[in-house]
Amino acid sequence: EESVKIVRLVKNKEPLGATIRRDEHSGAVVVARIMRGGAADRSGLVHVGDELREVNGIAVLHKRPDEISQILAQSQGSITLKIIPATQE
């Protein structure tokens, strides 16, 4: 059973501070990098390897990473992410 986590981040004009990529094996959209000091890093709630399912209620599974980045870039104020946390080894 996948544990889905709802994360709310507050982002002003600054970038979210995370990059995403598509996992070639599973097809999932995952967090590739977290930039120090960005909104994602400061929240402490988003981690490399987390699978991104939704951004502000928009399912991202069938979107290209550049489309998802665009949605994230255009979002201001509160951003709600639905993520499946990376499995902690």
Results as ranks from 00 to 15, higher is better:
residue 75 S to H: 12
residue 53 R to F: 06
residue 32 A to C: 11
residue 45 L to F: 06
residue 61 L to D: 15
residue 19 T to G: 06
residue 13 K to I: 07
residue 78 S to K: 11
residue 23 D to S: 08
residue 38 G to S: 13
residue 31 V to G: 00
residue 57 G to K: 05
residue 18 A to K: 01
residue 59 A to R: 12
residue 7 V to I: 15
residue 53 R to A: 08
residue 43 S to F: 02
residue 10 V to A: 11
residue 23 D to E: 09
residue 46 V to A: 00
residue 75 S to L: 12
residue 27 G to D: 06
residue 32 A to P: 01
residue 87 T to D: 13
residue 86 A to I: 09
residue 86 A to V: 10
residue 56 N to E: 06
residue 9 L to E: 05
residue 11 K to R: 11
residue 43 S to W: 02
residue 44 G to T: 03
residue 68 I to G: 03
residue 59 A to P: 14
residue 39 A to G: 04
residue 29 V to F: 11
residue 35 M to Y: 08
residue 29 V to Q: 09
residue 84 I to F: 07
residue 78 S to P: 14
residue 89 E to M: 10
residue 33 R to S: 15
residue 76 Q to G: 09
residue 21 R to V: 14
residue 68 I to H: 01
residue 56 N to T: 02
residue 88 Q to M: 12
residue 51 E to K: 06
residue 70 Q to F: 06
residue 76 Q to Y: 10
residue 24 E to F: 07
residue 42 R to C: 06
residue 60 V to Y: 00
residue 88 Q to W: 08
residue 66 D to E: 15
residue 31 V to P: 02
residue 35 M to C: 11
residue 75 S to G: 09
residue 29 V to C: 12
residue 77 G to W: 03
residue 6 I to L: 08
residue 6 I to Y: 14
residue 58 I to Q: 12
residue 30 V to I: 12
residue 87 T to M: 12
residue 89 E to A: 12
residue 18 A to C: 15
residue 13 K to G: 15
residue 85 P to E: 08
residue 61 L to T: 15
residue 39 A to K: 06
residue 58 I to P: 01
residue 41 D to P: 00
residue 55 V to D: 01
residue 89 E to N: 14
residue 36 R to A: 14
residue 84 I to T: 07
residue 23 D to W: 02
residue 66 D to M: 09
residue 22 R to T: 11
residue 66 D to I: 09
residue 87 T to A: 12
residue 54 E to V: 02
residue 17 G to A: 15
residue 69 S to Q: 15
residue 48 V to H: 03
residue 78 S to V: 13
residue 59 A to S: 15
residue 50 D to I: 00
residue 53 R to N: 05
residue 48 V to G: 02
residue 29 V to D: 03
residue 57 G to Y: 00
residue 38 G to V: 00
residue 16 L to R: 01
residue 26 S to L: 05
residue 22 R to S: 08
residue 30 V to H: 13
residue 12 N to D: 12
residue 71 I to V: 08
residue 47 H to A: 08
residue 40 A to S: 03
residue 63 K to R: 10
residue 12 N to R: 10
residue 34 I to L: 10
residue 37 G to I: 02
residue 5 K to G: 06
residue 29 V to E: 03
residue 86 A to M: 09
residue 58 I to R: 09
residue 10 V to Q: 09
residue 24 E to T: 12
residue 84 I to N: 08
residue 61 L to Q: 15
residue 59 A to Q: 13
residue 75 S to I: 12
residue 62 H to Y: 08
residue 72 L to Q: 02
residue 16 L to Q: 01
residue 80 T to S: 10
residue 23 D to R: 06
residue 24 E to D: 09
residue 44 G to E: 05
residue 23 D to L: 08
residue 69 S to L: 10
residue 34 I to E: 02
residue 27 G to R: 06
residue 59 A to C: 14
residue 55 V to E: 02
residue 44 G to V: 00
residue 41 D to A: 10
residue 35 M to E: 15
residue 58 I to S: 08
residue 17 G to C: 06
residue 51 E to W: 04
residue 51 E to V: 07
residue 56 N to H: 01
residue 83 I to A: 04
residue 84 I to P: 03
residue 79 I to D: 04
residue 86 A to N: 12
residue 89 E to R: 11
residue 83 I to L: 12
residue 66 D to W: 09
residue 78 S to L: 12
residue 66 D to C: 10
residue 46 V to N: 01
residue 53 R to D: 03
residue 70 Q to C: 09
residue 84 I to C: 11
residue 82 K to Y: 00
residue 18 A to Q: 00
residue 82 K to V: 02
residue 19 T to V: 15
residue 86 A to C: 14
residue 83 I to P: 04
residue 38 G to P: 00
residue 81 L to G: 05
residue 48 V to M: 05
residue 88 Q to T: 12
residue 86 A to H: 13
residue 13 K to N: 13
residue 86 A to R: 11
residue 71 I to N: 04
residue 80 T to K: 11
residue 11 K to L: 15
residue 27 G to K: 09
residue 35 M to H: 15
residue 64 R to F: 06
